[in-house]
Design a protein around this nucleic acid. Structure first.
Length: 558
DNA sequence: ACGACAGCGCATCTTG
DNA sequence: CAAGATGCGC
DNA sequence: GTCGT
C-alpha cells in the first residue's frame, strides 16, 4: 500500500522530536508559561506580524517572491546565493597578465624543452604560462623551478639532449620535470597542482609510484600517507556557532519522570495501549534511537526498482495503537546501500576504504552535505545518486569523460570529479564553506521553520545572528521555537561524532483503529494523548497541530 | 530550454 | 471574512 | 545536480 495517495486515511500520526539532553526542559517550561510580555505566547498567537514593520536593518529589502527558483539570487557571489547563477565568464586576450591574484605561477621559473617557442603550440603554452606569472627561461639556470617537457619527448631523450647538446653538468636543484600538461592543468584550476602526479611525469621517467607501487607497501603505510597528504583543511566548528541562542546549559538531568502513564490510565480511564504508549515513550526517551527505515535508497533503487515503490513497511495491526516500528534488520542480504547518507560517513571510520574513488566520494559527499544544509533537495539528491554510482564503480575514475559515462553523473559532477582527482579538492566547496553569506544562511536554515526563502531573505537583509532575528524580525511561532531550540533541533548529524546519532532523531507514531473510517475518534485519542503528555511536561512545544475534521497529524517536541 | 525530481498537512501570508 | 498561494517539514 | 522531453 502506498503511503501517500490515500486521502483521509483513518490514521493519525504523531511526530515527536526529542531534544538531546532533556536539560532544557525547565527553560522550555519557562517559555511555555512565563513568556515575557514582549512576545505573545507561541500558541494562539495573533497576527501581530506585520510584513512592513520598520525594524528592518535594510529597509531596501528586496522581496523575493519566488522561493523555489533562481530569482532568489540577487548577488554575485559564488556561494549558495548564487547556486543557480550562471558563470560570468569574461574573456581576455590582448592583456598580458591575468589579475595579480590569479598569477599562480608567479615566482616560478619555467624552462621548456625544446627550449624555444618555435613550435606554435608550445609558444602558446609559454605565453599562457607567462600570463599567469611564470618566468620563461631559456637557460638552465639554478632558479629554474620546472622543466616543462613536450609530450613528444621521452626522459631518455631529454637527458641525452641535456648532457650532450647543452652540456649540462647538473640540473637546477629545485627543478622538477613535468610534461606539457602540467602548466595547462594548473591554469585550468588556477592553482599549483601536485607536479609529482603520474600524469605529469615525463614519458619514460621513473615515477614515484612506480618506485613504490602501492601493492608493495603495507596497507597501513598507504593509509597513513593518505591521511597525511590528503587532509582537508579543518573546518570551523559548527557546533560553537550555535551558542548565541539563549541556550542555557542546565546540566542537571531530569532522570526520572514518575511514569505518569499509570496515573493517566487511571485518571482518564484509558485502556492499555495508550498507557503502553506513554510508558514506552517515556522510557525510551533517553535511549538511542533506532535507525530510521528510510525509503530513500538511491543507488539500489535506480537500478532495480520501478517508480511503483510499493513497499509500505508499516504493517496493519489490529491494535489501536501502533507502536513505533521495530528496527528493520538489515538481513544477511545486507547489500542495502546506505552509504549515501552523510551520517554513514563517520569521521574516524575509513570511508569506503577499498574503493579507489574513496577520496572523490568523500569530497562529493561534502558537496552533498553542503547542499543538504542549504536545503537544496535536488542537488542533494543528485549528489547522492552520483556518489552511489561512483561507489559501485570499481575502477578509479580520473577524467571527466570517464566519469560522464557513468549513470547519474553529468557534465558538472564529472568536471568536479576530475578536479578532485587533480587537485585533491574542490574550489567550489572551499568557497562555499568560506563565503560569509553562506555561513549566515546556513545558520538560519538550521532553524526549524526557516527554509530557503526566508533564510536567504534574512541573510540578504543583513542579519547575521540569531539575536538579530529575535530583535529585528517577525518570527512565526514555530520559528521562535526553532530558535529557542536551535541546538536541539539541529538534526544535522556532525560527521565527527557518530555517537551523536543516537541523540538526534525523532519518534513517529501512527495511530490507527480497525474499522475506523474517519480520523475523528483517533483525533480525540491523539488530543488526549498530547494533552496529557504536555501536562506532564513531556511534550514541550507544539509545532503543528491537527486542524479541521480531516486532519491527522501533530508535530511537536519533547 | 525547461520541468520533474512525491505529495501532503499545517502555518502563514496574500488577495479579493 | 474566505479562498488561494506560498513556505516549510516530513 | 541529472535526466527526459
Amino acid at each position: 500500500m502506498q503511503r501517500n495517495h490515500s486521502a483521509p486515511q483513518p490514521s493519525v500520526s504523531v511526530s515527536v522530536k526529542p531534544n538531546k539532553p532533556l536539560t532544557r526542559k525547565t527553560s522550555l517550561l519557562r517559555y511555555d508559561t512565563s513568556t515575557p510580555p514582549s512576545e505573545s505566547s507561541f500558541t494562539g498567537k495573533t497576527p501581530s506580524v506585520l510584513p512592513s514593520s520598520s525594524q528592518r536593518p535594510n529597509p531596501e529589502r528586496r522581496v523575493v517572491s519566488d522561493p523555489t527558483g533562481g530569482s532568489l539570487v540577487l548577488k554575485n557571489s559564488t556561494g549558495i546565493a548564487s547556486m543557480l547563477q550562471k558563470n560570468q565568464k569574461r574573456k581576455r586576450e590582448a592583456i598580458k597578465l591575468v589579475p595579480e591574484d590569479q598569477q599562480i605561477f608567479r615566482g616560478l621559473d619555467f624552462f621548456y624543452l625544446p627550449a624555444d617557442d618555435k613550435n606554435p603550440k608550445r609558444k602558446m603554452r609559454i605565453t599562457k604560462a607567462k600570463e599567469y606569472g611564470a618566468k620563461w627561461t631559456t637557460e638552465l639556470e639554478d632558479d629554474v623551478t620546472h622543466i616543462v617537457v613536450d609530450n613528444s619527448l621521452t626522459y631518455e631523450h631529454i637527458m641525452k639532449y641535456l648532457k650532450e647538446t647543452l652540456k649540462v653538468q647538473a640540473l637546477p636543484k629545485r627543478a622538477i620535470f613535468v610534461n606539457e600538461d602540467y602548466p595547462i592543468d594548473c591554469i585550468a584550476f588556477r592553482r599549483i597542482l601536485d607536479a609529482k602526479q603520474d600524469k605529469y611525469a615525463v614519458k619514460g621517467a621513473v615515477t614515484e609510484s612506480e618506485e613504490k607501487p602501492a601493492s608493495q607497501r603495507s596497507p597501513q603505510a598507504a593509509q597513513d600517507e593518505e591521511d597525511i597528504s590528503r587532509r582537508t583543511p579543518p573546518r570551523e566548528d559548527s557546533a560553537s556557532q550555535a551558542r548565541d541562542v539563549e541556550g542555557e546549559e542546565e546540566t542537571q538531568e531530569i532522570s526520572q519522570n514518575p511514569s505518569p502513564a499509570r496515573n493517566f490510565q487511571r485518571e482518564m480511564g484509558f485502556n492499555d495501549p495508550l498507557a503502553e504508549m506513554i510508558e514506552f515513550v517515556q522510557t525510551k526517551k533517553h535511549l538511542p534511537l533506532d535507525d530510521e527505515e528510510n525509503e530513500e535508497r538511491p543507488s539500489s533503487r535506480d537500478s532495480m526498482q520501478d517508480p511503483g515503490d510499493s513497499d509500505d513497511s508499516r504493517e496493519r495491526s489490529p491494535s489501536p495503537v501502533r507502536k513505533p516500528s521495530k528496527k528493520k534488520h538489515r538481513g544477511p542480504k545486507g547489500s542495502f546501500n546506505q552509504n549515501n547518507f552523510s551520517c554513514m560517513t563517520g569521521g574516524t571510520g575509513e570511508t569506503t576504504s577499498s574503493n579507489p574513488n574513496a577520496r572523490t566520494i568523500e569530497i562529493l559527499q561534502e558537496m552533498g552535505d553542503f547542499y543538504e544544509q542549504v536545503k537544496d533537495q535536488w542537488r542533494t539528491r543528485a549528489y547522492r545518486m552520483a556518489i552511489g554510482t561512483l561507489k559501485k564503480t570499481t575502477n578509479k575514475i580520473r577524467t571527466a569523460e570517464e566519469a560522464q559515462e557513468l549513470p547519474k553523473i553529468g557534465k558538472r559532477i564529472a568536471d568536479k570529479i576530475e578536479e578532485i582527482v587533480l587537485t585533491d579538492g574542490l574550489r567550489r566547496l572551499e568557497f562555499a564553506k568560506q563565503d560569509p553569506t553562506d555561513r549566515v544562511l546556513q545558520k538560519f536554515l538550521k532553524i526549524y521553520g526557516v527554509g530557503p526563502s526566508q533564510g536567504l531573505r534574512w541573510a540578504q537583509q543583513g542579519h547575521k545572528t540569531l539575536e538579530d532575528l529575535k530583535a529585528n524580525v517577525n518570527l512565526t511561532a514555530n520559528q521562535k521555537i526553532g530558535i529557542a531550540h536551535y541546538d536541539d533541533f539541529d538534526t544535522r548529524i556532525p560527521r565527527e561524532e557518530v555517537t551523536a546519532l543516537a541523540s538526534s532523531g525523532d519518534i513517529d507514531f501512527l495511530i490507527t483503529k480497525p474499522s475506523t473510517t474517519t480520523t475523528t475518534p483517533l483525533l480525540t485519542f491523539l488530543d488526549d494523548l498530547v494533552r496529557h503528555l504536555t501536562s506532564t511536561g513531556f511534550l514541550v512545544a507544539a509545532l503543528a497541530v491537527p486542524r479541521g475534521d480531516s486532519s491527522s497529524k501533530w508535530h511537536g517536541a519533547c
